[in-house]
Amino acid sequence: MSLRPLFPETRLRRLRYSKVVRNMVAETALSVDNLVMPLFVCPGKNVQNPIKSMPGNDQLSVDMLVKKCGELLESGVKSVLLFGIPESKDEDGTVATHEHGIVQNAVRAIKETYPEMYIIADICNCEYTTHGHCGTIVDGDVDNDQTLVTLAAQAVSLAQAGVDMVAPSDMMDGRVGYMRKALDENCFEKMPIMAYSAKYASGFYGPFRDAADSAPQFGDRSTYQMDPRNSDEAIREVEMDIAEGADIVMVKPALSYLDVIYRVKNEFNVPVAAYNVSGEFSMVKAAEANNWIDGKRVMMEIMTSIRRAGADIIITYHAKEVADVLNGKI
């Protein structure tokens, strides 16, 4: 291995003096096309409930959700990830499988007004169960195989409503293959699956649980979400999901798991999504509100770091703001 020339023959600052050159040689590119905006849909009409722990985000009734989608499209954000807050819940989340469930109705309404909006539906039960866990409870814990039945039915129902992609976030073993089979049997073989493949049992989800009313009523989710100490396990999870038919794999959260994003991209070279989660978003907003940081600058630095780690898709509550920065609006 030959040694590279050292100073003064080599001056790395030569390529930093001009903004034009800096842009020419930049190794990482961030585009509006990389962004997905999560949205929360709730019952009612003309409802816009601010989520206090997530400034600038709201629980939206279907009519207001459609309006929000129009605003996002104007900013260049072409995709949303939907979470539902139903009028009523049940023990196993079957309310999420109904033809006129909250997300199903939202999908139809968005597509009627903005057919160009690409809609991803989160597939999970935590928002729809009375106990707040991600599946059917048997002997005090989530039963893996019974939960698969509900998840597959939810995916098929949302596909019938017109969703463009399904995204199982439950972390049940085998759910991608089970869901793929159910979709194919119902003539949705073209429906892509974005699997929450490496979803950690993280402390960064607090604000989301306020937004989606999905906090577990007992215990925690450590028996099905991943241990934050593990990355080899994440590789095994991703490998299984790919083998079962996942088209995109996801790492969640993003910032504390940039190493996992990097490993997944390098080991599998498949499309990778990263979820810049509610706690990560809210920390930036809180620090910005206290004038401790330049919020816009930190936001863009975070987005770039996630892309640099290897993520092709960034799901983030910053999506519209990032788009506005990229488009020179703010």
Rank of each mutant, 00 (worst) to 15 (best):
Ser2Gly: 15
Arg4Thr: 13
Arg4His: 14
Phe7Gly: 03
Glu9Pro: 02
Thr10Gln: 13
Leu15Lys: 14
Arg16His: 11
Tyr17Glu: 14
Ser18Thr: 15
Ser18Lys: 15
Asn23Leu: 10
Thr28Ile: 14
Thr28Trp: 11
Ala29Gln: 15
Pro38Val: 11
Gly44Val: 01
Ser53Tyr: 04
Met54Cys: 10
Gly56Trp: 00
Leu60Arg: 00
Ser61Trp: 00
Val62Arg: 06
Met64Glu: 15
Val66Trp: 03
Lys68Met: 06
Gly70Ile: 04
Glu99Val: 12
Val103Ala: 01
Asn105His: 04
Val107Trp: 01
Ile110Lys: 01
Glu112Tyr: 08
Thr113Asp: 03
Tyr114Gln: 07
Glu116Trp: 03
Ile119Thr: 02
Asn125Leu: 08
Glu127Phe: 00
Thr129Asn: 09
Ile137Ala: 07
Asp141Ile: 13
Asp141Val: 15
Asn144Pro: 12
Ala152Pro: 09
Val156Phe: 08
Ala159Leu: 07
Met165Ile: 12
Val166Tyr: 03
Val166His: 04
Val166Gln: 05
Pro168Glu: 09
Gly177Pro: 04
Tyr178Ile: 08
Arg180Met: 13
Ala182Val: 11
Asn186Leu: 05
Cys187Val: 12
Lys190Val: 09
Pro192Phe: 12
Met194Asn: 12
Met194Pro: 09
Ala201Gln: 06
Tyr205Pro: 09
Gly206Asn: 05
Asp210Trp: 00
Met226Tyr: 05
Asp227Ser: 01
Pro228His: 10
Arg229Lys: 15
Ser231Arg: 14
Glu237Ala: 04
Glu237Arg: 12
Asp241Glu: 07
Asp241Ser: 03
Ile248Lys: 07
Val249Tyr: 08
Lys252His: 10
Pro253Gly: 13
Ala254Phe: 08
Ala254His: 08
Val260Leu: 11
Glu267Pro: 02
Ala274Lys: 07
Tyr275His: 10
Tyr275Glu: 09
Asn276Ser: 08
Asn276Phe: 01
Glu280Ile: 09
Met283Ala: 11
Val284Gly: 03
Ala287Leu: 14
Trp292Thr: 08
Lys296Cys: 01
Arg297Tyr: 00
Arg297Trp: 00
Val298Tyr: 04
Val298Leu: 15
Met300Thr: 00
Ile302Met: 13
Met303Ile: 12
Thr304Asp: 02
Gly310Arg: 03
Tyr317Asp: 01
Glu321Thr: 12
Leu326Ser: 07
